[in-house]
Design a protein around this nucleic acid. Structure first.
Length: 590
RNA sequence: GGCCUCGUAGCUCAACUGGAUAGAGUACUUGACUACGAAUCAAGCGGUUACAAGUUCGACUCUUGUCGAGGUCACCA
């Protein structure tokens, strides 16, 4: 709720109490629709039952009282059960003046008392490069962290790197067999791509072996397990777990390649972490907690020595937490990681940015943590985002339809360059600025396109049509910013203004600015960058409308001119502020 | 099959969490550059919110059922 609404709410609560004897009323506001007079609208239906009067009458009574009691409410009208209130011009003007001098406008500052929260995102496997799915994950996680921070929460960004297990061994083994000592240096390939190449090579060889076995008469399921190269990979995993020096050395070498590769991808995406956790460490911790959990009766051991958790009381099933051979499964590692994180950074809340295919996993994880006595588990949640679909359907690595993250980012950059050159506004810009600019535009197109969709929903992405640069897009918002910047470069302005006449377009822009603080709060509680996108788009549209209909630099009345420059300045600042929450930069020229 | 998501304009997405006549972008049609930057603005076209019942002052939103799409039910991660 914004400042104006808070004032009105307080007043309404009192009035409703006095008039109708309603305790703790539900006061709900909405923006007044354009076809009616007024700025904010109070829905009076919730009161009519208690008041035992018609909606129109209740609204009439409330409106009269509000105008009497509050300076900021200057007029009202009633349409059915809707009470439309007009807020005074002085309120809007004062708001703009205050916002103008507030560099942190919209944000809540963080101090020692601020709530602590962990945001986990990314958390890749180390056997192949990042793809489009990871891009959605990374952009979401990073942006959510930024938004939470702006809302006044002390955020700690983390990931857990899945650096052990059979998938790594597959890449390692294939490299050993077919790699001829290739390195990123010798091939010029990014490390993660080189390792990914051998993961694919493994799969290809594995399939050939399976086909051969099947041709020799073995049934398919048996062949899956009996293929020699798979057995070899499993042996390698055992060697790894037994800390065989040569295996460990190879593992470290290839992981290093991958980390270097990831680092440059993250860097280009503009995301970062406060701490990385490594599964190769935390799976041991998890195991220890499970063993303790057996003693405390949270888990039980079967005859074959495997360890389980009975979740039937919670409406779920029995869940395996340790294999019969004593090795950890996925959830074991997550138990260890969560507990270690809480020790590192005693959070009140922790959110896991992970695809919705793992809904069940996190449900189980949070229950188990609670059973182990960690009440903070109640503050854990799963930001469950939908998959990214291609026009052809789901991305499938087997069918080679996976969209590579590095390639896609480069493609966006190329596209931005091509369109910029076609427009021909690049004269006078030096080479360095140009290349920064193409990156800025390309990345904004990509990021905005992905972030504007409600995270929880599955979304469509067509890499061939690439991404629009017109309409509801990142570059559209950047363009408005650049255009305002152009005005501000030419403006002579002392940083203040006296009064601003509130004609329709001007007032709409101010009202939109006025929403910003609340939008940040809502986006934070909903964990939804999409709300920031929608807001910024609306702000930009309102401003463009204003810009089209109103002279700014051309205005001859000096006082008016200054007021409009002031408004433009605040819009530019707010655009920039909002785009930073999305991880998007804005150019002053484009 | 059990459980969990989702189904909105031709396409991609919104709808302030139960509020007024369901909105944007794109595509298509049309108008506005001797201009503070046209990557813009303005107008038109486009809907039985998958379908059917129910709950109430009021339903895209909540309940149930049907149809359709996806996910998940591993000693994979």
């Amino acid at each position: 709720m914004n400042q104006a609404e808070i004032k009105v709410q307080e007043s309404v609560e009192k009035i409703v109490q006095d008039l109708y004897g309603i305790e703790n009323p539900t006061v709900s506001f909405q923006k007044t629709r354009k076809e009616f007079d007024g700025d904010i609208t109070l829905v009076v239906f919730p009161f009519v039952k208690m008041a035992r009067k018609k909606p129109e009458q209740v609204a009439e009574e409330l409106g009269t009282k509000l105008v009497e009691e509050l300076d900021i409410v200057i007029a009202f009208n009633v349409v059915k059960g809707f009470l439309n209130l007009s807020i005074s011009d002085a309120y809007w003007t004062n708001f703009l003046k205050e916002a103008l001098v507030n560099e942190q406008f919209g944000k809540v500052a963080i101090d020692d008392q601020s709530e602590k929260m962990i945001v986990e995102y990314s958390s890749p496997n180390t056997n192949k490069p990042l793809h489009l799915g990871h891009i959605r994950n990374n952009l979401l996680g990073y942006s959510v962290a930024q938004i939470l921070e702006a809302s006044g929460i002390n955020v700690f960004k983390v990931q857990v790197i899945n650096d052990r297990g059979i998938h790594i061994c597959k890449s390692m083994l294939a490299w050993q067999k077919f790699g001829n000592g290739e390195t990123p240096e010798s091939t010029g390939l990014k490390g993660d791509h080189l390792v990914g190449k051998y993961y694919v090579a493994f799969d290809k060889y594995y399939r050939a072996e399976m086909d051969k076995l099947v041709a020799e008469g073995m049934d398919k399921d048996a062949a899956k397990k009996k293929a020699p190269i798979l057995i070899e990979a499993q042996e390698m995993l055992l060697k790894w777990e037994n800390k065989d020096p040569q295996t460990i050395e190879l593992w470290e070498t290839m992981n290093k390649w991958v980390y270097d590769g990831f680092a440059s991808t993250y860097d280009r995406m503009g995301v970062s972490f406060d701490k990385n956790y490594y599964e190769s460490n935390t799976y041991i911790l998890g195991k220890e907690h499970v063993l303790k959990g057996i003693e405390s009766g949270v888990f039980y051991r079967k005859e074959d020595q495997s360890v389980w958790c009975d979740l039937t009381a919670d409406g779920l099933d029995h869940k395996l937490v340790l294999r019969s051979d004593g090795t950890s499964v996925y959830i074991t590692q997550d138990i260890g990681t969560a507990i270690e994180r809480h020790q590192d950074f005693p959070f009140k809340k922790m959110v896991y940015t992970v695809g919705d295919e793992q809904d069940y996993h996190f449900k189980v994880l949070f229950i188990i943590l609670k059973k182990l006595g960690y009440i903070w588990s109640e503050g854990c949640s799963h930001l469950s985002y939908g998959m990214v679909d291609l026009p052809s359907g789901k991305m499938k690595s087997r069918e080679g339809t996976v969209v590579d993250a590095d390639e896609l980012m480069q493609k966006m950059n190329d596209e931005a360059r091509a369109i910029s050159e076609e427009r021909g506004h690049l004269e006078g810009m030096d080479e360095n600025y140009q290349s920064e600019l193409f990156e800025m535009i390309g990345m904004s197109a990509l990021k905005y396109f992905i972030l504007k969709v409600d995270p929880r929903k599955r979304m469509m992405f067509d890499p061939n049509e690439s991404i629009d640069l017109h309409g509801n897009t990142g570059p559209f918002i950047q363009y408005t910013y650049a255009r305002i910047s152009s005005i501000l470069r030419k403006a002579e302005w002392n940083g203040d203004f006296t009064a601003i006449p509130l004609d329709e377009p001007t007032k709409n822009v101010i009202k939109k600015l006025h929403e910003y603080p609340q939008v940040i709060q809502t986006a934070a509680s909903e964990l939804s960058p999409a709300l920031i996108c929608n807001y910024t788009f609306e702000l930009v549209k309102e401003y463009n409308h204003f810009y089209q209909s109103t002279p700014i630099l051309r205005e001859s009345d000096l006082s008016l001119k200054q007021a409009r420059i002031a408004l433009s300045t605040k819009v530019a600042q707010t655009i920039k502020s909002a785009m930073i929450l999305l991880g998007v930069n804005v150019p002053t020229r484009m």
